[in-house]
Write a protein that binds this DNA or RNA. Structure first.
Length: 279
DNA sequence: CGCACATCCTGTGTGC
DNA sequence: TGCACACAGGATGTGC
């Protein structure tokens, strides 16, 4: 569920908590969260380092350390938690009962940052540098960066024969868009998700670019009001359903033309769209 | 190279 | 009501 706007909101909220702080100790509670890296390797790279900055590209968040980086990917359910002190963490943590689920904890010189993902899809990894992380190095143009211009986007579209929906999900071309906002962008751009990427006329490419930019900006606004509350173990983004026009609205009337929203499978996942006004 | 498909997980929702 | 099972999601790896 966390796509670019959600991760951006997390990054902005995290900065004042961890920038300039030192990582005293890394506790790997569930080793699956660092797989295939070993917990000892993660500790060796991260412990004792100072966090210089919090960065984001696509759906990846990373901590720039004095030497090396820590990458975080939340996949579907991953989230961050914050504890002012070890005592407060111990009060809510309970490995045998109904306490807070924690996978990895970064004990800082002030406060503790927890990474939690009950489904264990999310990952915490360490790398010698940004360039040494293949996943980061392989990412395409960040959909919220200045470089994501209509002209660059049109070029990328021309270079792909894939259906628009699958094109938008390909992080190697444009990074940050997931299943939800790809559906939303295509709805706002009034384009059929099944159309080949290289079939778009210039005006259509510009329309889709504009739709992506506005959909992501609107979602970010939503994610920041209110901002994530890492102190609440159950925190999650609120009110996003209210801004959705196509995603998860199968059978419901299109907010533009009233025809029922359809759901089809593309690349093994659901696409929601209006077959009447998306052409 | 590009594409299709399986895989990893587990909470939630559906059907019987 | 209770149980079984399919499904959802992003990135990666495998096979064609």
């Amino acid at each position: 569920m966390p796509e670019l706007p959600e991760v951006e909101a997390v990054a902005r909220t995290l900065r004042p908590l961890v920038e300039r702080r030192k990582i005293r100790c890394v506790h790997v509670i569930h080793a699956i969260a660092t797989k295939p890296q070993s917990s000892s390797y993660v500790r060796r790279i991260a412990e004792g380092q100072r966090i210089q900055s919090v960065q984001r590209r696509g759906k990846y968040l990373w901590l720039q350390l004095t030497q090396g980086i820590v990458t975080l990917h939340f996949k579907l359910d991953g989230r961050l938690l914050w504890f002012p002190s070890a005592k407060e963490m111990a009060e809510v943590e309970n490995p045998h009962g109904s306490g807070v689920h924690l996978d990895v904890v970064f004990e800082l010189d002030k406060g503790l940052l927890g990474f939690a993902d009950r489904r264990h899809f999310g990952r915490v990894h360490v790398w010698a540098s940004e360039a040494a992380c293949p996943a980061l190095a392989g990412l395409g143009l960040d959909a919220m960066s200045r470089d994501f211009t209509a002209a660059r986007f049109a070029e990328l579209l021309e270079g792909s024969k894939r259906p628009l929906k699958e094109f938008l999900l390909d992080q190697k071309r444009v990074a940050g868009i997931g299943n939800i906002y790809s559906c939303e962008s295509l709805w706002h751009g009034r384009l059929d998700p099944r159309r080949r990427a290289d079939s778009l006329k210039s005006a259509e490419a510009h329309r889709l670019h504009k739709a992506i930019v506005s959909v992501l900006a609107r979602a970010l606004e939503c994610c920041l009001h209110p901002p994530p509350d890492f102190r609440d173990p159950e925190w999650w983004f609120q009110g996003l359903e209210d801004i959705l026009r196509a995603y998860d609205r199968e059978g419901k009337p299109c907010r533009r033309c009233g025809e029922p929203i359809r759901r089809i499978a593309q690349g093994g996942r659901s696409t929601y769209f209006c077959a009447y006004c998306q052409k």
